[in-house]
Computed example of a mutant assay.
Amino acid sequence: MRICWANTENYDESNVVILGVPDESKSHSLRKGTSEAPHKIREISNIRDTYKRGSDISTGFPLGGINTKVYDYGNILRTEVSDAIGKISSKSKIPITIGGDHSISTDIIKSLSKRYGSISLVYFDAHPDFISSSSGYYGSVLHDVLPDIDTKSSIQIGIRTPEQEEIDNIKKHDLSVITPWDVLKNGITEIEKTILGKIGKNTYISVDMDAIDPAYAPGVSVPVPLGLGNLEVVYLLKSIVKRGIVGLDIMEVCPGYDIKDRTSHLASRMIAEVISAIN
């Protein structure tokens, strides 16, 4: 099943490539099931983001429509991520990856850095994922990609439950962090200015859906109250994307814990809004 936003069956003519990685082998979460997310997000996109009039099936595009050519690559194994991302980026296409657990982002970023050099990382998450005492799992992503990113032009957004080790690493590497409290205090337009003033040329966005408050995204592997609003996240995503990105991922949707597929539907809509903002 293709995501409903795919509008071409010709890989060569596409600008954006959707691919799923149904793997959670490096997650330590008590909640299991993120490997089901690529299928569920595609399924829900076709159920809720399309409508039928007579014999015609149409897609409800975001305001402004989608002019970008989007190809659904299907699902791949975790071991295939590096090569697949390398193939996509070598043709200057933008990969949008659906996980799976957040450690998948490590392989994506490392592959992209081989093409673009040091990456400017925008990391939406409730957790910093900056554990350095362990590596190769969903809580060590920032530590594992340090050689591949420019920390001076990278930023974390939505952080609200760091461990002491992560706080120490954030300070050590002088990584910028925006919390939900910052958004509440300063307002979304000031936060937008801060982000756009921070990020560099080759920007990659990684979204753990638990950055969003469980009121909007209950179906995640590690829900944390007091998170970002769904509209706030989409607003910031679109602003960043308009500046140009080399890729994006959406991770940690956990369909088995969702409520009426709200999180999967939100993830689908977020993908559409990102695509609609690509120049």
Rank of each mutant, 00 (worst) to 15 (best):
D168R: 00
S35Q: 07
K32R: 15
K185R: 13
K110D: 15
H265G: 13
D150P: 04
E166H: 05
I159N: 04
S118G: 14
S135F: 05
I41K: 12
I3F: 15
T50I: 09
P62Q: 12
K171P: 05
T203H: 06
A211P: 02
K152C: 05
R31G: 08
V81P: 06
E190H: 14
N7S: 10
G20H: 02
D150Q: 07
V253F: 10
L146F: 05
G33E: 09
S82D: 13
H127V: 06
S103T: 08
I149C: 10
D125C: 09
T194I: 15
S55C: 02
R53M: 07
C4G: 09
G229C: 11
D182L: 06
S29T: 07
F61T: 04
Y257N: 12
R160A: 06
C4T: 14
I170L: 13
S35C: 01
E190M: 11
Y71A: 00
H143Y: 13
D83Q: 12
P38F: 02
I104S: 03
K260D: 11
D208Y: 06
H265Q: 13
Y204D: 13
K201N: 11
A277N: 10
E9G: 12
V17K: 04
I188H: 04
V224H: 05
T34I: 10
D213G: 09
A272K: 10
G158D: 09
R262F: 02
S134N: 00
D258P: 03
Y216N: 14
I199P: 03
T68I: 15
